[in-house]
Amino acid sequence: MMQVTPQAASKTSRSDWQKTAEFVARNYSTEKVANLLLVKEQTIRAGYCRDGHYQNLIPVKTPNRRLLWPAAEVDALVVGRPAKTPDATDIDKHLARKAADASKVPAHIRAKAEAKAKRLTSGEVAK
């Protein structure tokens, strides 16, 4: 029976793991941010999805689709200081990326948007 040593099993160098660990340490998960700001996790995700930021915080999206939020800016919000204003180009990129892939829009949202567009173009008034 052949034994696999940790060195043979891993192709990632130690410095890569250290860099990753340092990056994660400087950022908070959505769950941690929600706990610190006393809101539900979904509130944060919805704000980011809708506006491209939550309370001026812009997360980093990891390859596994998780969001990591900048710890220093979250800590500033917790103590009552405003987070830095996000760059408008970052928000525009986020919104453009969402608009570019219509398959990511849920069917019920797509139907509402189409109905609203139809009302606006036909001059129909909502009741």
Results as ranks from 00 to 15, higher is better:
E22K: 14
L77V: 13
T89K: 15
P82G: 02
T30G: 00
L68D: 03
R26Y: 01
D90Y: 03
G52S: 11
A113H: 01
N27I: 01
T85M: 11
D101W: 00
D87S: 11
H53M: 11
A34I: 04
A107D: 14
S29Y: 04
D87K: 12
K40Y: 14
R97Y: 04
V4W: 07
P86I: 07
G52C: 06
S15H: 09
V60L: 05
D16P: 00
T20S: 13
R81T: 05
L68E: 02
N56K: 08
P82T: 05
T89H: 14
G52A: 12
R65N: 14
Q18S: 08
V125H: 02
V74R: 12
W69C: 04
Q42K: 13
G123M: 01
I58T: 15
H94K: 08
D101E: 09
N35D: 14
A8K: 12
V105H: 01
K118D: 03
V60A: 12
T43H: 05
A117L: 08
D101S: 10
I109Q: 03
K32G: 00
R65I: 05
Q18I: 12
S13K: 13
R81K: 15
R97C: 03
N56G: 06
M2N: 13
K118L: 11
G47D: 08
A126S: 12
K40F: 11
L77Y: 12
Q7S: 12
V78C: 09
V74D: 11
L95Y: 01
A71W: 01
T62N: 02
K98M: 10
K19S: 06
S103R: 05
H108I: 04
Q42I: 10
P82D: 10
I58V: 15
S122F: 01
V60F: 13
T12H: 06
W17D: 07
I109M: 02
Q42L: 08
K19R: 14
K104L: 11
K118G: 00
N27P: 01
A34W: 05
Q55D: 08
E22L: 13
P82I: 07
P86A: 02
R50E: 15
R45K: 15
K98S: 06
P59C: 11
P106G: 02
N56H: 14
T20W: 15
E31P: 00
L38Q: 15
I44S: 00
A96V: 03
A34T: 04
P63V: 06
A113V: 09
L77I: 12
G47M: 06
L38W: 06
S29V: 03
G52P: 00
S29I: 05
E73N: 08
L120T: 06
H94Y: 10
I109E: 06
L57M: 09
V24T: 11
H108Q: 07
K127G: 13
R14K: 15
K32C: 04
V33L: 07
H108V: 09
V39M: 10
E22N: 11
F23G: 00
S103P: 03
G47I: 04
K19P: 00
K40G: 14
K19D: 06
D51V: 03
T85F: 09
P63F: 07
S10L: 13
F23E: 04
T121G: 02
A9Y: 11
H53I: 10
A71N: 07
V33F: 02
S103T: 15
N27C: 10
L57F: 08
S122T: 15
A107I: 13
A99G: 01
K61P: 06
N64G: 08
